[in-house]
Amino acid sequence: MPYRENLGDVLLNVEDLRVIYKTDLETVAAVNGVSFTIKRGKTLGLVGETGAGKTTTALSIMRLLPSTTGRILGGKAEFNGRDIMKFDDLMLRAIRGNSIAMVFQDPMTSLNPVMTVGDQIAETIETHNEKISKNEVKKRVGDILTLVGIMPQRMSEYPHQFSGGMKQRVVIAIALACEPELLIADEPTTALDVTIQAQVLNVIKELRERLGTSMLMITHDLGIVARICDDVAVMYAGEIIESGPVEDIFSPKAHHPYTAGLFDSVPDLRSDAKRLKPIPGLMPDPTNLPPGCVFAPRCSRAMDICAREHPKKTVSGAHSLACHLFGGTGA
């Protein structure tokens, strides 16, 4: 599918989002000025290694950061033109689960062990439809279970009676119970083995097409990105260093050295390389980020300017990246 700009309107527009975790001992700069947009019916993949701030970004959009430590310093997250950062508790509860739903990483822990699967799906429906009858709820629970490929008869069973893949499908069913406009999937397949991963991804893909839901897919698996996403944003140390349509990111043209490094770390069946090329070093300490480009200390193509100056975004079409290598040429 070729990338078409301005297709449909913008559902979610995140601008310059900055989040810190503050404890008595230290301040962790988790998200530093992240901006992206998700268009209606489209899927954005947020890629990056562990600790890059992907989950924090997602939780900030839901305003679910741990209340004792997490702080949103600034930025906007406009959902349907309204800034979620300015919502009060009541407004937040009204959109959570109803307009924006979330699929969590680990289906083993994100289901309540003492509640039946049906009750957990019904909970979301009841929360957002106060005047709905018991029978109506039951019918909808049955429908949504069928949709994710689970027999409705099993709604009165407990999570431990389900396999891992089925649990994740239940979690997806809960998220989709109110047919949200935006689904945030936080590494939905990380806790599952490869065959089940494929199963769950198929369910997600199918449902997205059937319901027209937009998605924010958080993952560190480039294979998933290629299969599911329309756009990609690569995150590193709390910043989006490269973003664009999936074709641009996967095409062998100019890339941020980090993105190039990510691709070098993926095994390729067609190349006869003996070893993978990992990116040397570790992510910088988020309590003490380098002043210039955050990737500079690990970058094989780092220049003098990289350590001093924070790179600006270079945009070419829908593809944008933040790196001094491409800044000068305007590529």
């Binding site: 839901m62 679910l64 959109i95 109803n98 979330m102 969590f104 309540n112 929360t127």
Partner: peptide, 17 residues
Amino acid sequence: EQEYVEAAKAGGAGSVR
């Protein structure tokens, strides 16, 4: 602190529920 409580919050459930 359990994830299913976070999941319930993400589903819009209030404190009482």
